[in-house]
Design a protein around this nucleic acid. Sequence first.
RNA 1: GCCCAAGUAGCUCAGUCGGCAGAGCAUCUCACUCGUAAUGAGAAGGUCGACGGUUCGAUUCCGUCCUUGGGCUCCA
Length: 671
Amino acid sequence: MADITIKLPDGNTREVPAGTTVGGLAAAIARGLAKKAVIGSVNGVERDLVWELQDGDEVAIITADSERGLFTIRHSTTHVMAQAVLDLFPGATFAIGPPVENGFYYDFELPPGPDGRPGTFVPEDLERIEARMREILAESQPFVRDELTNERAREVFADHRFKLEIIDGEADDPTSATESGLVRTYENPPAEPSPNPPFHGYPGFIDLCRGPHVPDTKSFLGHFKLMRIAGAYWRGDEKNPMLQRIYGTAWATKAELDEHLHQLEEAAKRDHRRLATELDLLSFPEELGGGLAVWHPKGGIVRKLMEDYSRGRHAKGGYEFVYTPNIANGKLFEASGHLGFYEDGMYPPMEMDNGTYYPKPMNCPGHNLIFGSRQRSYRELPLRLFELGTVYRYERSGTLHGLMRIRGFTQDDSHIYCTPEQAHDEIRSLLNFVLSVLRAFGFEDFEANLSTRPAKAETVGTDEGWAEATENLRAALEAEGLEYEVDEGGGAFYGPKIDVKVKDAIGRTWQLSTIQYDFNMATRMGLEYVGEDGARHTPIMLHRALFGSIERFFGVLLEHYAGAFPTWLAPVQVRVLPVRDDHDAYAREVVDELQAIGLRVDWIDASEKLGNRIRKAKGEKIPYVLVVGDDDVAARTVGVNPRGGEVERGVSLDAFAQHVADEVDDQQHVS
RNA sequence: GCCCAAGUAGCUCAGUCGGCAGAGCAUCUCACUCGUAAUGAGAAGGUCGACGGUUCGAUUCCGUCCUUGGGCUCCA
């Protein structure tokens, strides 16, 4: 047979016999490669290992340790799960099942139960499904690719209404795109034909799918675990029926699976809700109502330090401090437009004899009243109004999540009013300011999103206004050297925005800060300034928050630090432990001296053994534990046991005090 | 709001096939006075999330509601 020539990613070519497959090519290159090969990329399109190559094809072998290889493993695993569910639940049907980060899911509809309502999975079902999946794996069923005509596909999937919608193009399934009038499928022929096959004309499982897949259910699969059951709306629309989704995680090796499960445990240990309870920082009393928190003294002091720091930075940054009330007459929110757009998300009104009042969901209308309280000149712009403003939003009950999504929260909110000429420089310095403040809280890694104009008809503002605003935001991102992704059409109807995200200590990203243009509200509320030309102009209005919400930011910090706040933020910075009762007097002296320089210090007497008192202090994640005994009383020293460090005996009290004072000072002066 | 699950002492959790409610830690008291991650003894602590129903009897079974968790949808 004649040879064909294949181009490889390194630029070399290779002659192989005609009829060679992707898998055959991998074997021809190296045995190790063939072993790891999951799929191949042929002329930029991913193909199964059994795909036959043509002369001149450009081919790259995709291995199990690559992102795309892992993606394929997850994708194939979800097919196996669907087969298992259809086996175990006669009459069940399925919708879509893509690979996702760390795993996969599939959405199912179970036949109705005796009460006529659609069936649901129970947690024990996951074990049964997983056991059935392992049987399917053991059968080593091949993944067989085919292309059917629409008519044929409609027959095969006649009992599967969601698949029919996909075949008809009414529903989108990213893993089963159709091409040239043909419907692509993958079949897993079973060892024994099913007594009641759920598909017409096939003995076992078949799915709409563009592939590619691992060669068979025995290869590469098996390092998976079904994680949880969830409800999910068909086509993501809450008006559609709710399906039963099963999430699973899948990896190329057992070690990776174990590592992932271990990381989930680690993340659970730093869950801010758990730490908030353990460290006595704050709580969500049931009596208070859902999504509302009370701050205990230890959480309160951290919050106060965050607020003090924020105020200090804003004072230096040219902001002016304002206060607006927590409730306002509904007319204000009519004027601002909030009542029209977001009434459902607002706490219900209070009817008073002189009007209808609402808890404020936003601070901007109040700030706009301050701007509009007298005639403004271009000479006083940019005007930066700042408030730690507490707002109330009636978040839907199912969306609440600890401090991350809460109904009453405080924004470090500012509205900046400037002229169009000032906007460019203002945004640049603003972004710099944002990053500088975030760095002080221990964040190093930043990413950003630049969200641009949504569909034009749904937006306000001029083409030029949008273009210029978007360019100003982009220029600021580039000036700061910040990596960013453009979220096309992701802006609000009233303007484009930058969202700043931080990466925490275990690599998760959190969206925190936001900088938003607003072409809408200044006009709606009739805000004007007199320009150099003596004419009236509408100011550019920017909304911005650094922490976003103090509650949420605190939650992120708590998880970032796993509860071990840096010294400048720690509720208790130093704990003094006298060895015996007769060291109490000196312990008090140490406390007094450290308190005198502004440190937060406490002490615990010797009614418990020293070892246990140290253990408790470590549990509270106190940065410094000082032990004072006979030697120290005599020499005015302390034994220093720092968090995460080595014990040092005989440190002079003055030197220790200076060390901690310097540390606190350094931590707050990050540029 | 929708689907699933959970709610028992301050915390973490066991338990009751319907019959006086349990542990560890924390708390309090007493003793111990100790040099770097758990000293001992004792005490106290509960409307078993709330309200209805079934029952001689409900923390347990049923229903409704509330709160929380995992998702979906939403997030000015």
